[in-house]
């Protein structure tokens, strides 16, 4: 509640001309945002994710939400491989929806969000969307109480989204030299999974921006924060 009030008052006092350019300005990081307050994603809101690791972000979000997951995409063949998804989320919960155009992707996502039958709606978008489309999805998410996650290309997205994330994979040991000994234990035997991502929060409507290096704990089925990368 406190953040909500804060946010509203801030919104009111801010001049209209600078309302939408927060992503261009480097925000002064005075206090670090806690990861747990930003992820798992806030329910009944529309979020956006871009970058190489966007699909993993979507898969992890799907694994952490409850109920069915509607995955809307424009592709004839599924982009996500259920065998790979298995590590993060039960593929049986997925409802894969093939649309023939971006318009239908957006319309299907809106229908699915408004019905409230699913826990998460993932929409893979091929191109940029405007403020109108983003706002409609946001309203539908609020009406149905369903979380929306739009997988967008770099630089696309709308200002109506609650948060926007950029996810990139990281080499197994950051800062290490390139002549690491090659590991020959395949498949890995209960060893810690070396998968690391850099998750940057590049837009946040209700808080500051931040960046974390995270990993996936397959055994506990949860995200572990390796380091608070800070600003």
């Amino acid at each position: 509640m406190k953040t909500c009030r804060l946010h509203e008052s801030r919104f009111r006092t801010r001049p209209a001309s600078v309302r939408f350019d927060c992503q261009k300005k480097p925000v002064q990081q005075t206090m670090s945002l806690k990861f747990s307050s930003a992820f798992p994603l806030k329910k009944a809101r529309a979020h956006e994710v871009c970058g190489d690791g966007a699909l993993a972000f979507a898969a992890i979000s799907a694994g952490l939400c409850e109920g069915a997951v509607v995955w809307v995409s424009e592709h004839r063949q599924p982009v996500v491989n259920p065998e790979g998804l298995f590590a993060y989320c039960d593929p049986g919960r997925l409802l894969v929806t093939r649309a023939d155009s971006q318009l239908n992707v957006l319309a299907s996502a809106e229908t699915a969000l408004r019905s409230g039958a699913a826990g998460l709606v993932v929409a893979e978008l091929g191109g940029a969307i405007g403020l109108t489309e983003g706002r409609r999805l946001q309203l539908a998410a609020e009406a149905g109480g369903t979380t929306a996650l739009l997988v967008i290309p770099e630089g696309a997205g709308s200002n109506a989204a609650e948060t926007r994330w950029r996810c990139t994979g990281l080499p197994p040991d950051t800062g290490g030299s390139s002549d690491l000994p090659q590991r020959q234990n395949y498949p890995p035997q209960n060893g810690p999974d070396s998968t690391r991502w850099r998750w940057s929060l590049i837009k946040n409507k209700i808080g500051t921006l931040s960046e974390w290096i995270v990993g996936w704990d397959a055994a506990a089925h949860r995200i572990i924060v390796v380091s608070e990368a800070g600003g």
Partner: peptide, 27 residues
Amino acid sequence: REKDSLDDLVTQLGNRLGLENILRFQP
């Protein structure tokens, strides 16, 4: 109720995209 609402969603999406485009993974 939960299942019904999911079936209704499949119907709604199916009427827009065709029921053959609303799919599930099976191993």
